[in-house]
C-alpha cells in the first residue's frame, strides 16, 4: 500500500469508499507488490490505515457502540464485532447478496459499505425481524414454502424480500424474479423463494 492509497479520514465520500474497497480486494487476490516487483510498503504506512475509531451503530433498534478501523465493512462489523452472525458473507464483493441488510429501510449489501459510514442510520438484520417467538410473515413464508435448503443465502434473501415488498415489486411472479435476482441461491430454491415472497406480500397487504 502506498501512502496515497490509504484512507486518511473517516467519512463517507465515494473516494474513501473506493480506496478502502481496494484494500480488501487486493488482499483477497494475488500479492500485487510481489507481482509488480515493488518493494513492500512499510509497516508504518499500514498503521495509519488502521487507527481505530469509536462508532455507534443502531442495529435492530439498539445503539451498539463499537471500535472499528475505518476500513472495516459493515458486514464484518456486524459479524466479527457485534456478534450478529445471522448476516452472511458469500463473496465479500457485492456479487451474491448473502450480506443484504436494511439501512433506513433500503436493502444494501453490507460487504460494500463501511461501518463508519452507517452511524446514525437504522440498520436491520435478520435477527431483528421476528417479534419474540412470532416470525415475520416473510420468515414464516420461507419456512412454509421451503424457500431454503442450506439456509446460507436465506438471511439475505429474506432481507431483500422484506424490502422488495415495501418497494411494491410483487405485482407478478416475473417481477419478483427480476427484483430478487441480486440474491444468489446455489441450492437453487428460486421457485420456492418466489412463492414465499408472493404469499408473504399477500399476507402483508
Amino acid at each position: 500500500m502506498s501512502e496515497e492509497e490509504t484512507p486518511t479520514k473517516v467519512g463517507s465520500t465515494r473516494r474513501t469508499v473506493l480506496k478502502a474497497g481496494a484494500t480488501t480486494t487486493l488482499a483477497a487476490g494475488t500479492p500485487l507488490p510481489a507481482l509488480l516487483g515493488e518493494a513492500p510498503a512499510s509497516a508504518a504506512a499500514a498503521a495509519t490505515a488502521t487507527s481505530p475509531v469509536e462508532v455507534s451503530l443502531t442495529v435492530n433498534g439498539v445503539a451498539r457502540p463499537c471500535t472499528v478501523e475505518p476500513r472495516v465493512t459493515l458486514l464484518d462489523a456486524l459479524r466479527e464485532r457485534l456478534g450478529l452472525t445471522g448476516t452472511k458473507k458469500g463473496c465479500d464483493r457485492g456479487e451474491c447478496g448473502a450480506c443484504t441488510v436494511l439501512v433506513d429501510g433500503r436493502r444494501i449489501k453490507s460487504c460494500l459499505t463501511l461501518a463508519v459510514m452507517q452511524q446514525g442510520k437504522e440498520i436491520t438484520t435478520v435477527e431483528g425481524l421476528a417479534r419474540g417467538d412470532r416470525l415475520h410473515p416473510v420468515q414464516a413464508a420461507f419456512v412454509r414454502e421451503d424457500g431454503l435448503q442450506c439456509g446460507f443465502c436465506t438471511p439475505g434473501q429474506i432481507m431483500s424480500a422484506v424490502a422488495l415488498i415495501g418497494e411494491g415489486h410483487t405485482r407478478s411472479d416475473d417481477e419478483i424474479r427480476e427484483w430478487m435476482s441480486g440474491n444468489l441461491c446455489r441450492c437453487s430454491c428460486y421457485p420456492n423463494i418466489v412463492a414465499a415472497v408472493r404469499e408473504a406480500a399477500k399476507e402483508m397487504s
Binding site: R79, T85, G86, K89, E127, A130, L135, A140, F142, G151
Partner: peptide, 30 residues
C-alpha cells in the same frame, strides 16, 4: 416443513464461521 427452518430464517443457525470461539485470530492464505 424442515425442522431447522426456524433457525435458518432467524439467523440463529450457526455455521462454521459463526462459531463463538474465545480469542480467535484470523488466518488468510497467500
Amino acid at each position: 416443513a424442515r425442522v431447522d427452518g426456524r433457525a435458518k430464517v432467524t439467523g440463529a443457525a450457526r455455521y462454521a464461521a459463526d462459531a463463538e470461539v474465545r480469542g480467535v485470530a484470523h488466518g488468510v492464505l497467500v
